[in-house]
Design a binder for these strands. Sequence first.
RNA 1: GCGCCCGUAGCUCAGGGGAUAGAGCGCCGGCCUCCGGAGCCGGAAGCGCAGGUUCGAUUCCUGCCGGGCGCACCA
Length: 561
Amino acid sequence: MGGIVEEISASLAGALAGALESARSSGAVKVEQVPDFTVEVPREKDHGDFAANLAMLLAKPARMAPRKIAEMLVNNFSLTGTWVERVEIAGPGFINFYLKPAWVYEILPRIIAQRENYGRVDEGKGKRVQVEFVSANPTGLLHMGNARGAALGDSIASILDFAGFSVTREFYINDAGNQIENFGTSLEARYMQLLGMDVPFPEEGYHGEDLIGTVRGFVDRNGDAYLKAEAGERRAALVKYALNEKLEAIKRALEDFGVRYDVWFSERFLHESGAVGDTLKLLREQGHIYEHEEALWFKASAFGAEKDEVLVRSNGIPTYFATDIAYHLNKFQRGFERVIDIWGADHHGHVARMKGAVAALGCDPEALEVVIMQLVRLYKGGELVRMSKRSGQFVTLEELMEEVGKDAARYFFVMRSSDSHLDFDLDLARAETNENPVYYIQYAHARICSILRQCKEQGGKVPDPAEVDFNLLQEESEFALARKLADFPGEVASAAKGLAPQRIARYAHELAGLLHSFYNAHRVITADQALSGARLVLVDATRITLQNALHLLGLAAPERM
RNA sequence: GCGCCCGUAGCUCAGGGGAUAGAGCGCCGGCCUCCGGAGCCGGAAGCGCAGGUUCGAUUCCUGCCGGGCGCACCA
């Protein structure tokens, strides 16, 4: 597994290290250690296919001019058995390797053979990793921030899976605690109001319009049966009904968005199973808890946080933080080696104390990674739309999908880094649907499919790569396309390492661009059968790679548009 | 005030210790008798400011300026 680019880079590095060895044993260069050098693909084409910085790093320890060292290394470097055509010393002391162009075409048979697995790498070595994302309160519908979290989390999970990790996608259901109490009083007020009573709506309640519809459904079923019931019983019935309805709506919306979870984890379970109490006990035994003004505090400041935090209020009710600690302990108890949380920027203050709590429980705080995503700002009619469940003003995930489509929305959310703000101009997204980059990529895929259909109609087929002469691919745009295909495994590895789906988004866009350029310059199906065969393999390999990249982002790879 | 994130082209954003910093939109000028013009080709235009580390800084560090978000016995 891994890419041809990585293989060649590694073998060149090995050969250079060997060259340094022989230069050393002959006494030409005097250094104690081989420095940590790199063999990379230079940005400039004119600087070769690969370039090494070894000579520059040796300059100081060897007390020699870098170009002089480079010369010595090159003299001790054997070209036999490699793709290297020539070596050049350039600039301040770079060693630039120029390869026989055919090296790039080695990738094509591999792609055809690996199909939907092309691009898989083994960064993870099967390590178990959990990605928890969205985890929206089941008290309303999903908004734009949740949508970004969904697109990000799902793509990160897919990329990690492709990079060799064993991934679990998890949604944490906040179905207990303070907000549920609040939810209950809000529902109760709506219930009374619907039944004609003049009761005030709680100021801090959930003002969302959707709640009225939910309660109306409850009334249709139960009528005024709960009017005379005891308040606690009434609220419990309302909450049970509403939570179920909201959660189902959330599940449906996420599924329509292309997101499927492995685990839906209930907060209530943590309370009912005694996990919260056990966790508090554990912390207390370790001496990380103290009492102050009748509340129980966690010594978060002892673990690098800014200040200590309340775990149990003076009224005896544990805080959200206490429950969250129990939840994270549970995650580690389930055997995950990496635990990744995707949070909105408004929760970033929570990171240090959560890591502190993990450390206090004897787990490795490094094993908890929190991806902070900056908030989404929604613009409509040139004005900022305030999104808040309390105010009831928000655009839901469903509405977003209706307006711009699932694929466009998902691409938009992951095309930029998570720690970059996202200005989502709804009008623009709606008006310029055709200009959305996702169509550009999908169009490239559909275009190839069209060529392959054409080929089939004419009685032809994509030949077995073993029978193809790739030396016929002499055009620059052919080389550039194949070269880009070879980059895919490396891109997957970087995206996984950086939890950065935007890398895949950009890669797919660039690959599509190269396909379009090639397509406009040259015909695939021509009278020249040998050349057509080579080009068919080239575009088929492009189709496979585009499809794999699109799937990592949860986007469709349409055969027709 | 303290903490985290961000200041890159007119706009929205990628990138990142190296040798000539990219894309989309917008703007200007071209390209189909031809496998899908939802496309292609060309052009103008940029690393907030000041120090520091380094052979080399747009990238790392410090300070400043500007923007966002946090700093509850809320979640």
